[in-house]
Computed example of a mutant assay.
Amino acid sequence: MKLVVVLMLAALPLYCYAGSGCQLLEDVLAKGADPETSVEEYVDFMSEFLDNDKEREVAAGLKQCFLRQSNETLANVMVLENAIFDSLLCAPF
Rank of each mutant, 00 (worst) to 15 (best):
residue 90 C to D: 00
residue 43 V to C: 01
residue 13 P to S: 06
residue 74 L to P: 04
residue 8 M to W: 10
residue 85 F to K: 10
residue 37 T to L: 02
residue 52 N to Y: 01
residue 46 M to L: 15
residue 23 Q to I: 05
residue 54 K to I: 11
residue 56 R to P: 03
residue 48 E to K: 13
residue 87 S to L: 01
residue 10 A to V: 07
residue 71 N to A: 13
residue 86 D to E: 15
residue 75 A to N: 07
residue 77 V to E: 06
residue 72 E to Y: 07
residue 1 M to Q: 13
residue 40 E to Q: 08
residue 12 L to N: 07
residue 62 L to T: 09
residue 72 E to V: 14
residue 49 F to S: 14
residue 42 Y to P: 06
residue 84 I to H: 01
residue 90 C to G: 00
residue 24 L to C: 06
residue 55 E to L: 12
residue 14 L to S: 14
residue 19 G to Q: 02
residue 11 A to K: 10
residue 77 V to T: 06
residue 47 S to H: 11
residue 45 F to V: 01
residue 40 E to W: 01
residue 3 L to C: 07
residue 3 L to K: 13
residue 2 K to R: 14
residue 59 A to Y: 01
residue 88 L to I: 12
residue 72 E to I: 12
residue 78 M to F: 05
residue 30 A to C: 04
residue 22 C to S: 09
residue 26 E to Q: 07
residue 55 E to A: 14
residue 23 Q to H: 08
residue 40 E to M: 02
residue 40 E to S: 08
residue 63 K to Y: 10
residue 7 L to Q: 15
residue 63 K to D: 13
residue 55 E to Y: 05
residue 15 Y to S: 07
residue 3 L to F: 06
residue 43 V to N: 03
residue 64 Q to L: 13
residue 40 E to V: 09
residue 33 A to M: 02
residue 44 D to V: 00
residue 7 L to A: 14
residue 42 Y to R: 03
residue 91 A to Y: 13
residue 68 R to F: 08
residue 45 F to N: 04
residue 47 S to V: 02
residue 44 D to P: 03
residue 27 D to E: 08
residue 77 V to Q: 06
residue 17 Y to E: 07
residue 30 A to E: 03
residue 52 N to I: 05
residue 79 V to L: 09
residue 20 S to P: 02
residue 56 R to M: 07
residue 78 M to A: 05
residue 14 L to W: 11
residue 45 F to T: 01
residue 37 T to M: 10
residue 29 L to N: 02
residue 33 A to T: 02
residue 37 T to N: 01
residue 18 A to Y: 12
residue 76 N to S: 14
residue 44 D to I: 03
residue 86 D to P: 03
residue 11 A to E: 07
